[in-house]
Design a protein around this nucleic acid. Sequence first.
DNA 1: TTGCCTTATTCAAACGTTTGAACCTCTTGA
DNA 2: TCAAGAGGTTCAAACGTTTGAATAAGGCAA
Lengths: 366, 366
Amino acid sequence: MVQRKSGHVTLLDVARACGYSVSTVSIVLSEAPLSQNVAEKTRTRIREMAKQLGYHPDAFARSLRRRRSQTIGVLAYDLSDPFCIPIVQGIQSGLKPVDYLPLLMDAQTERKLFDNYLKMILERRAEGVIVIASWVFEETNLMADIEKNKVPIVILGRDLTRRKISSLCIDNRTGGALAMRHLHSLGHRQIAFIRGPEELFDSEPRWAGVTAAASDAGIEIDPRMVFELPSLVDPKSGFENGQKLARQMLASGRSFTAVLAFDDLTALGVVRGLNEAGLRVPQDCSVIGFDDVLPANVATPGITTIHQPLKQMGLLAAQWVLQAIEAREEAKPAPVEFQRAAPELVVRGSTAALQTNQGKRKSQRA
Amino acid sequence: MVQRKSGHVTLLDVARACGYSVSTVSIVLSEAPLSQNVAEKTRTRIREMAKQLGYHPDAFARSLRRRRSQTIGVLAYDLSDPFCIPIVQGIQSGLKPVDYLPLLMDAQTERKLFDNYLKMILERRAEGVIVIASWVFEETNLMADIEKNKVPIVILGRDLTRRKISSLCIDNRTGGALAMRHLHSLGHRQIAFIRGPEELFDSEPRWAGVTAAASDAGIEIDPRMVFELPSLVDPKSGFENGQKLARQMLASGRSFTAVLAFDDLTALGVVRGLNEAGLRVPQDCSVIGFDDVLPANVATPGITTIHQPLKQMGLLAAQWVLQAIEAREEAKPAPVEFQRAAPELVVRGSTAALQTNQGKRKSQRA
DNA sequence: TTGCCTTATTCAAACGTTTGAACCTCTTGA
DNA sequence: TCAAGAGGTTCAAACGTTTGAATAAGGCAA
């Protein structure tokens, strides 16, 4: 075999090897319309030679010439958060049928990395961008560049419609209310709460849902039983903070029969914290989470939680972005989409009906 | 602003906008050595105009010309397995300092997707490939193409040195032995085992470690207490199978005081299965896992497990691949690397010393 | 004046594709 | 015999960069 300067086999190599021109080979291998006119014999000859040499078309050259990258940038705030994974899967499933490649990037909750990757997405000429935002997502001038270059974008986990950006997030209000109503229906009246961190988009509406449902049910929330997560840095810190806050709850000496946590990892932390103090979930205290991520499902008892249809949300985001690309193709204006996905209560083992002696026992221990 | 046919701003646009040639603009913006010769005034002028127009160099054109993609393909067998995430993070941290972009792909345990992505990695001219293999990884002719095109490759999770491919995996034998010895040191003698599925590379050496340590300790393994996972399709099935097998163990009527599970998710499934039958972990039965993934850490009790240094392994894989690229650059042969990473016992709450009445109580219940 | 060195900029070719247009060589119908 | 058409293949330009070589304008020594 000829020693190539670049390690890769090119069209020219194949052409020389079987005595045709580059054009013919290209036409055959890319299955262009013109390839009907190419003699059957030639076609098979070229194909065989290509396979034998291990030829693979150069995506760079092809994209450059075709002016299409067949790529969607997918920027996740933190892949180590189990929350992101089903979304990514959903996106993948939306992209596969149309043969778009997701360019998956993990910002690891670092603002600088986030910017960096956004730049790369632009440089790699992604035809669209999906951002899994949740936290760590402020306006950057990169975002302006994305718009300047007319790259369709969809934000997952935040409402940015006021910026005219298609967005998709969970209906936090309803979700919060669902969680609250579930505890209420089990008979719980003395409930401790852990709110999300202030800078997180989800925190406020979710809390609003909780308080609304509480007042509907005639429960008054003791502000001394409302705790707030400090700003999170990574998924595991949610667990640790839940654990710490559970200790604080117990140390406060006030009695409670249930804990409504901001998300699943916090809930898992609470369970741990309660257990360390000898309290069992759900017998001594019920705990409810939010998100329905894998660890909540495989822990024992399973964490009762508010399910987010993450896969479907990812799929929808992918469809929106594809649809926006198509619109741009036809020089039509792409609509700004928005949807609040419907949350669902998933009852598992971490919540149970209030026992008559439960409140007392708790205050004794504390 | 001019209406561009392609949505993207090019060097030519910038050049026209500030009255210089494409070359000058390129030299300035790419900070080529020649840019020292360019007048200070010109440079700032060009830079400002570029920023104002939102110019970003076209990675395709650049890579085509430079004959470098600055890209490493990272092919994971299944991103939804929490096992993969730390590895990916490690890879990322190894690639960031040298400004290589990881092209992250998720095969979702589908053989066809795997092949497809491998092809794409080739087409995108990744300068190297890292495969997170574990299961679902058979020789494909794509692999041959990768070698034909001289793309350096590193396999994580399998030993492929006989194929002359750099590989990196955990020392399963030692890990299995560690787990066994831990249970033994706690006084457990009646142990149930769950082996990994046959087609998984890790299964056999891990089991070998277990049996070796058992015979060293003078424990005889009751073959009727040895169960085997069916072939897994996704991480959650590990949990479900663990749960099922725990039921089988109990149904068998034989007594056991501890379960050594193949991995963490299986262990979590066992815990659930035992709990359903009214058995508490660790008081009535100890359970140990393997891998140390997130769910094992945040469950309560935390799962005692064998930690794999996944981050470091990812980092090392990245370094190997970079080093192989460098070697190829200098036309030197790249060495075939191999390493078995050292596992570590992490003791958490799911294992405890044998209680005197424990074995009896178990058999009473069953 | 010539020759040479700096400084500042541009030319033009190349990277590997794709594709509209052009080119051959037959065959066919008039 | 010629024109027209069909079948099979190739030309050459273009995509947006980078970069070695060339150019131009000035300064300066001989």
